[in-house]
């Protein structure tokens, strides 16, 4: 029996979003809508809060491939954001060792006015890579995108497909440690698809921990060995992928 190396530990984590009653806040509506599955409660100041996560305790070790399932608004995205350190929990504790790579929006920071190469450099900086690391990776990324001379042109001149290749290649250019994905990344046009899939597979296999939130059962089963079922911000079940997914499906169909 190998000693398991814990990479990400969450202890009794709770997150709640206050609903600010000033009508002008657009966020309010968004939260109410998205978070409506979380329990609505009021806090010490009698303010309405959506309890997006309640007392979640989870442990992720090296080699874990974990699927996150649950209905819309069950708290999957919030949980991923807590893992990524974006939301610091209201109570409880999150401890991580190793670089956490959230892959929530791979198009983040793409500037249409910058050239393709400049966009790759910017993306690299956002990923926390050093400039020399980025320069080393650029030939490989450029080669993969097949954009050749287009890389010198501003990204706004690209077609949708070309832009997708660029963002995809730049997002998957590094070796992730703890990889967090909110839905599987879709990788472009048909001609590009198989090539992109191979790259994504290699990328994901590289990660020492994978946490994937997805509604696609097929993708969950392909990539994950464990699953966490979230319901109204609480962990309903943790276990082997088949067990949890079957229980989840039963619950959904019997509803």
């Amino acid at each position: 029996m190998h000693a398991t190396i814990e990479r990400l530990v969450m202890d009794n984590v709770s997150v709640s979003f206050p609903i600010y009653s000033m009508g002008s806040r657009s966020l309010k509506k968004g939260l109410l809508y998205r978070g409506s599955r979380g329990r609505i409660a009021s806090d010490a100041n009698d303010r309405l809060v959506v309890e997006a996560l309640r007392n979640v305790s989870l442990r992720f070790s090296v080699g874990d491939r974990v699927a996150l399932v649950g209905a819309n608004g069950a708290g999957k995205t919030t949980l991923l954001r807590v893992m990524a350190g974006i939301y610091e929990p209201v109570s409880g504790m999150v401890r991580a060792s190793g670089r956490i790579s959230p892959m929530f929006d791979i198009g983040l920071g793409i500037d249409p006015e910058l050239s393709g190469l400049e966009n790759i450099r910017l993306r690299g900086l956002l990923l926390g890579l050093r400039p020399d690391e980025i320069e080393r990776l650029i030939p490989e990324i450029a080669d993969f995108t097949e954009l050749a001379d287009y890389l010198e042109l501003p990204a706004r001149t690209y077609s949708t497909g070309m832009l997708m290749r660029l963002t995809f290649a730049a997002a998957t250019c590094f070796a992730p440690e703890i990889l967090l994905m909110d839905e599987w990344i879709l990788a472009g046009d048909a001609a590009f698809l198989s090539k992109a899939e191979r790259r994504l597979e290699a990328f994901v296999e590289n990660a020492s921990v994978l946490v994937l939130a997805s509604h696609n059962e097929q993708i969950c089963r392909t990539w994950c060995s464990k699953a966490i079922w979230l319901d109204s911000g609480q962990v309903k079940a943790v276990g082997a992928i088949d067990e949890v997914l079957n229980a989840y499906r039963d619950a959904v169909t019997s509803r």
């Binding site: 709770s14 806090d43 100041n45 309640r54 209201v90 109570s91 409880g92």
Partner: peptide, 16 residues
């Protein structure tokens, strides 16, 4: 006091 106090019974004192 802008922090949201948890109303859950496990964390009575603001949970911190």
């Amino acid at each position: 006091d802008n922090r949201i106090k948890k109303s859950s019974p496990q964390a009575p004192s603001g949970g911190n």
